[in-house]
């Protein structure tokens, strides 16, 4: 190629170095996943050998089936699906509602609220773990509690306890506001003149216009919630029926400790990764927008 030839030797050396660097990085990124996958296919005998057999001679594909029949992975999987989809749907709704109000309405206190949304993002997650746990525990009139939050167990041991703290994220509101800012006011005013109510305008006219925004936030929340560990674990430590895939795998670690069951653990780990991996591969361009929105300017 003429362009390449006209460049100096240093430029060509840099090109080679560039792809060598990226290639080396790829090896470091991918080998751990392959190692896990091979582990899931090993027999107990191959694990017990000294030194252990690295490449499985008789790949145990059945381990991916045994995960579902011999461990509670099916329940975990179901919980992961329920919780992830519920949180994603709720957050899309609440974030777009709040984002729309902050972007498109002028009312007393609007800028104060928006500053509140920005400021709230400074508060780290760990600060909320203890108080929110007890707010859910002593929530009035929930789970057998009386008006003063006594007597029952509140929201503990329910899906609500896992989902409620994630019904809103400040970042989601901020992100959706940015997308709504791009919707022209004239469009809304025209719809108002035609006699459309505010809710009809929002759901029928405006929401379809910010579908890319909803996709961005949706994939973002989906990946985050599928992978969420700390909160779900805190709530479900004593409620195995509510555990998700990552949490279940971690809390049942004692049962996966020997050579006979380690392959099952690695198969379960693979199962916990695959759904989000596929979702991501198809929707990754939306994910980029979520991560870079507001992060880099100038």
């Amino acid at each position: 190629m003429a362009i390449v030839q006209s460049r100096s030797g240093g430029a060509i050396a840099w090109r080679i170095l560039k792809y060598a660097l990226l290639g080396a990085g790829v090896v470091i990124m991918v080998v751990p996943f392959i190692d896990m996958f091979l582990g899931a296919l090993r027999t107990p005998a191959e694990r017990l050998a000294n030194p252990p057999v690295y490449w499985p001679r008789d790949p145990q594909w059945i381990n991916f089936k045994r995960v579902f029949t011999e461990t509670p992975a099916l329940i975990w999987f179901k919980n992961s699906i329920i919780i992830t989809f519920a949180v994603t749907f709720i957050q899309l709704l609440t974030s777009s509602m709040a984002g729309y109000a902050l972007a498109k309405f002028r009312f007393r206190g609007a800028s104060l609220l928006f500053r509140g949304v920005l400021g709230a993002q400074m508060f780290p997650f760990f600060l909320f773990i203890i108080p929110v746990f007890f707010i859910l525990r002593y929530f009035p009139m929930a789970g057998g509690n009386d008006l003063f939050g006594q007597g029952g167990s509140g929201f503990l041991n329910t899906y609500a306890a896992i989902i409620l703290p994630f019904t809103i994220t400040w970042y989601g509101i901020f992100l959706m506001r940015q997308f709504f800012m791009g919707v022209p006011d004239e469009l809304l005013d025209a719809a108002r003149l035609d006699g459309a109510g505010e809710f009809r305008i929002f759901f029928i006219i405006v929401l379809p216009l910010v579908l890319p925004g909803l996709a961005t936030l949706g994939i973002f929340v989906f990946v985050y919630q599928w992978n969420e560990v700390i909160w779900t674990m805190t709530i479900t430590r004593t409620a195995p029926d509510l555990q998700t895939l990552p949490v279940g795998i971690y809390l049942l670690r004692g049962a996966f400790a020997d050579e006979a069951t380690q392959s099952l653990q690695q198969a379960a780990v693979a199962v916990s990764i695959i759904p989000v991996m596929f979702t991501f591969l198809f929707l990754q361009r939306f994910y980029v927008r979520g991560l870079t929105a507001g992060a880099v300017k100038g």
Binding site: L102, L127, P165, F199
Partner: peptide
């Protein structure tokens, strides 16, 4: 569904959440 009340209804989930799961815990 008037223009002056609607924003507060749109904001109500955020405000309720903000009180129960943000201000109160802090």
């Amino acid at each position: 569904s008037s223009k002056s009340v609607a924003p507060w209804i749109f904001l109500s989930p955020m405000l309720a959440f903000g009180v129960i799961f943000f201000l109160l815990p802090i």
